[in-house]
Design a protein around this nucleic acid. Structure first.
Lengths: 172, 172
DNA sequence: CGTTTTTTGTTTGAGGTCAAATTAATTCCA
DNA sequence: TGGAATTAATTTGACCTCAAACAAAAAACG
């Protein structure tokens, strides 16, 4: 079957680095799937729960910032956690737009270090690498992440002329 | 609103590194969305197309390996590329299980370096960092990615006792 | 006051992702 | 030869993701 499927022909430095990012990404999702089977929580669900444990009463928007998630993404995650009785949502009486979040008793039971989570794996790997090697890596990562998120700011006028361009929705 | 929303209270070294990975991940998806609007291709679609341009006749499985994608994920991506007339799928006459992939003329037109793609951004960022700093970063990345993908191999018997445990499907 | 603007969070839509289950074709081997 | 493994790709199901569009509440301001 196509031999050993090794590096075969190199695709170029940039493409190789991209494959690395992709691998990380896919590893994350793969483990998330396995976590769902083993501990009953996906990766994002568990991180949300963990942070919630350390910041009781945090608002949804702030949590989205901490997790660097789009608010609408967090809505779904919280919905699933709430549906399973791990998280409680409360409307802030002071400012009724805000939603205050907290763990339930059931949720607190899961807020502990657990083998087989992303947290545990990253902890183990980082422990095996000298800090002076991790720090530069983190900086490179941060630089790439920042560049990816940074919007062109000048991408105003241009329209995708060809294939499909995504219609403006129009809400049927 | 919760002040400047800075680092606030640190969440720990491991959690911080995880946030970094998350940021990378989200940056990737964010840019993918913008690419869809600007050039009409998502990130994965474009990488698939790019690789396809350099490996005409590659099989679906091999491409999935190169992109480190699950075969079932690739199926969807190829389906969308094909639907838009950018990719052609051909059953291999030698081994009719195999699917041979190639770009159409339309697809070849898009197989060029383009500003605003993940490729372009990564290229630009990497160009600004000395190679002797990129290499170690790549190694750390690879180590984390490998650890995330590595299956416990011993996760047989255990069952998720609590919340939901994910029913074994059973195909309704 | 009442209207406009801003802020918070949710809903909707299109894609991406994995794993498990399926289908189809090929290879193994008794 | 013919059934049993194996391999390639697809389908199905549940989740995550972003962005755009909304809805609701609060703040600004006239």
């Amino acid at each position: 079957m196509d031999a050993a499927e090794g590096p075969a022909k190199p695709l170029g430095k940039v493409l190789d680095f991209m494959r690395l990012i992709w691998a990380l990404d896919h590893g994350l999702q793969s483990l998330s799937k396995r976590m769902q089977a083993s501990i009953g929580l996906t990766g994002p669900q568990r991180v949300a729960l963990r942070v919630l444990g350390r910041r009781p009463g945090i608002s949804a928007g702030t949590l989205a910032n901490v997790l660097r998630l789009h608010p609408s993404t967090l809505t779904g995650i919280l919905h699933r956690l709430e549906r399973r009785g791990l998280v409680r949502r409360t409307r802030d009486p002071e400012d009724r737009r805000r939603v205050r979040l907290a763990l339930t008793a059931r949720g607190r039971q899961l807020d502990v270090p657990t083998p087989g989570t992303v947290e545990a794996v990253v902890k183990r790997v980082l422990a095996g690498i000298p800090a002076e090697r991790v720090r530069p890596a983190a900086e490179v990562l941060a630089a790439v992440a920042a560049a990816l998120l940074e919007k062109p700011a000048s991408a105003r006028h241009q329209r995708a002329p060809g294939p499909k361009g995504r219609a403006p929705v129009t809400r049927r």
